[in-house]
């Protein structure tokens, strides 16, 4: 239910890192998630498909990767992204 807010944060973090690294087009974003991240991949992609229009992420996909070492309140990390 809070995937809209999560999507906004992911896009802000990636946009900032893309500028720092002179990346103009992004193809893939990898998010590490803990066992209780409560992040729903389908809902996240629904928001991402709407929000990425007309941005450098327009052609990108988000991939979730499980990481059982993540515990507590912070169980979602922007791990890497791929672009040029």
């Amino acid at each position: 239910m809070h995937e809209g807010a999560v999507c906004r944060e992911i896009m802000d973090i990636v946009s900032e890192a893309a500028i720092e690294n002179e990346i103009n087009k992004i193809y893939e974003i990898v998010i590490s998630v803990g066992p209780y991240s409560c992040l729903h991949e389908g809902q996240l992609n629904f928001y991402f498909d709407v929000m990425k229009k007309d941005t450098i992420m327009e052609e990108a996909v988000i991939r979730l990767e499980s990481d059982d070492t993540l515990t507590g309140t912070s169980q979602m990390y922007v791990k890497t992204f791929r672009g040029e």
């Binding site: 999560v6 193809y27 912070s74 979602m76 922007v78 791929r82």
Partner: peptide
């Protein structure tokens, strides 16, 4: 094509 490592908490702005 480059892969950039970020490792940043998605909710870091909220947490700050």
């Amino acid at each position: 094509m480059k892969t950039i490592t970020v490792n940043k908490n998605v909710l870091s702005k909220n947490d700050e």
